[in-house]
Amino acid sequence: MVDERQTVRQVLDSLLDKSHCGYSPDWSLVETINELQMERVFEDHENLVENLLNWTRDSQNRLMFTERIEKYAVFKNPQNYLLGRKETCEMTERNKEALLEECFGGTSVSVPEMEGVLWLKEDGKKSWKKRYFLLRASGIYYVPKGKAKASRDLVCFLQLDHVNVYFGQDYKSKYKAPTDYCMVLKV
């Protein structure tokens, strides 16, 4: 039984106590949506019941209790996620802590600005198009075809309020994705 006020972390602690798995921060609750072939790891602070209430009554969705090493990977090796490809290297623990403090510490949390090419499949379209995207604190933006990377030309793709990031599974065969590595942004 899960109390409607419990966070994912509280549910995980209860499951770990009952299953005698041994404590590890990598234990996770993973939501899978089979119909759309996507999954996501619930964050520890989320309310579990609120998320499950979003499921339809006859849903085939599943909730799995499993270990996922990627759950806290950004905190274990922040250089792999917060630095450019050229700067990624082995870092001392002290340097990792400094990098995390720079991005997530202090009174205001700063979003690292990232940019690069992503493949996009728009609603109703059959083909995937390359677009140049920029991650900003206010959202995700892209550069329309034939435009420069100037701020005035950017188009807001998605504001980051109340967005869940899912991993696409086998999108290459089902949706003819150009790569096996897909993410789904669900509002």
Rank of each mutant, 00 (worst) to 15 (best):
Asp3Leu: 13
Glu4Arg: 12
Val8Trp: 06
Arg9Phe: 13
Asp13Thr: 05
Tyr23Met: 09
Val30Pro: 00
Glu31Pro: 00
Thr32Met: 02
Ile33Cys: 03
Gln37Cys: 05
Arg40Ile: 03
Phe42Pro: 01
His45Ser: 13
Asn47Cys: 14
Asn51Met: 09
Leu52Phe: 06
Trp55Glu: 12
Gln60Thr: 03
Gln60Trp: 00
Arg62Glu: 11
Leu63Asn: 02
Met64Trp: 02
Met64Ile: 00
Met64Arg: 02
Phe65His: 05
Glu67Gln: 12
Glu70His: 07
Glu70Lys: 03
Asn77Tyr: 13
Asn80Met: 09
Asn80Ala: 12
Thr88Ser: 10
Arg94Cys: 05
Glu97Pro: 00
Glu97Asp: 05
Leu99Ala: 05
Leu99Arg: 00
Leu100Lys: 06
Gly106Arg: 02
Gly106Asp: 05
Thr107Cys: 06
Val109Met: 15
Ser110Met: 05
Ser110His: 06
Val111Thr: 13
Gly116Phe: 03
Trp119Glu: 08
Leu120Ala: 10
Leu120Gly: 04
Lys121Tyr: 12
Asp123Met: 07
Lys130Phe: 07
Tyr132Gln: 07
Leu134Ala: 03
Ala137Trp: 06
Gly139Met: 10
Tyr142Lys: 08
Tyr142Asn: 09
Val143Cys: 13
Val143Pro: 03
Pro144Met: 15
Gly146Val: 15
Ala148Tyr: 10
Ser151Ile: 03
Phe157Glu: 14
His162Trp: 07
Val163Thr: 12
Val163His: 11
Val165Asn: 04
Tyr166Asn: 11
Tyr166Ile: 05
Gln169Tyr: 04
Asp170Ser: 08
Lys172His: 11
Ser173Ala: 10
Ser173Lys: 09
Lys176Glu: 15
Asp180Lys: 08
Cys182Trp: 09
Leu185Cys: 08
Lys186Cys: 07
